[in-house]
Computed example of a mutant assay.
Amino acid sequence: MILLGILPLQHILIILLQIFFIQSKIPKTSFNLPQHLQKHPNLKLIFPNQPLYNPFLPPPLISPLILPSNTLPYIIHLFFLLSLFIPALFPPLTSNKSIIIKQPLPPFLPLIPLILPI
């Protein structure tokens, strides 16, 4: 259950970093922004539009944690975790291999107790 709660927090943090704090040091290093892009005048315009899907992810990921345990919250949670995990596999396979820890691992860990009877 802790892993299921951490994943929505991760997306809330990404939203905050990309929309409100893009000029600070943390997102510049977290998103590996090259120096020439860090000083780009449109940075404040580009990044707030980048995380448009992120605000939609925390509510369905949190809902199974606060709703009574039954089939619908389980299916909702499984659907959204898979929706995060499957697309997150593409960047590490096609570009930076170190992203495998940052992108597909967080949605994969909560999938384990949902899929396997532990």
Rank of each mutant, 00 (worst) to 15 (best):
L3G: 05
L3D: 09
L4M: 09
L4A: 12
L4Q: 14
G5N: 10
L7K: 05
L7D: 07
L9I: 12
L9D: 04
L9M: 14
Q10T: 10
Q10K: 03
Q10W: 03
H11W: 12
H11C: 09
I12A: 11
Q18V: 00
Q18G: 04
I19N: 00
F20M: 02
K25S: 13
I26S: 07
P27N: 05
P27V: 03
T29E: 14
S30N: 06
S30A: 13
S30W: 10
F31S: 05
L33Q: 06
L33A: 10
L33M: 15
P34E: 12
P34W: 00
Q35S: 13
H36K: 14
L37E: 12
Q38T: 06
P41Y: 13
P41F: 13
P41R: 11
N42Y: 11
N42C: 05
N42P: 01
N42V: 04
I46S: 03
I46L: 12
N49V: 00
Q50P: 03
Y53G: 14
Y53E: 10
Y53V: 14
N54E: 14
P55Q: 12
P55R: 08
L57C: 08
L57W: 11
P58R: 02
P58L: 01
L61V: 07
L61Y: 10
I62V: 15
S63K: 08
L65D: 04
L65T: 06
L67E: 05
P68G: 00
S69W: 00
S69C: 01
N70C: 04
T71E: 06
T71R: 04
L72Y: 08
P73D: 00
P73L: 08
P73N: 01
I75P: 00
H77Q: 15
L78C: 04
F80P: 05
L82K: 10
L84N: 14
F85Q: 08
F85T: 08
P87C: 02
P87E: 11
A88K: 10
L89Y: 11
F90L: 15
F90Q: 14
P91K: 14
P92D: 13
T94H: 09
S95K: 08
N96V: 02
N96L: 06
S98M: 03
I99R: 01
I100F: 04
K102M: 03
K102S: 05
K102I: 08
P104R: 04
L105N: 00
P106I: 00
P106W: 01
P106S: 05
P107N: 02
P107W: 05
F108C: 02
L109G: 06
L109W: 08
P110N: 07
P110I: 01
L111I: 11
L111D: 08
P113A: 02
P113H: 04
L114M: 07
P117W: 01
P117R: 10
P117I: 09
I118L: 12
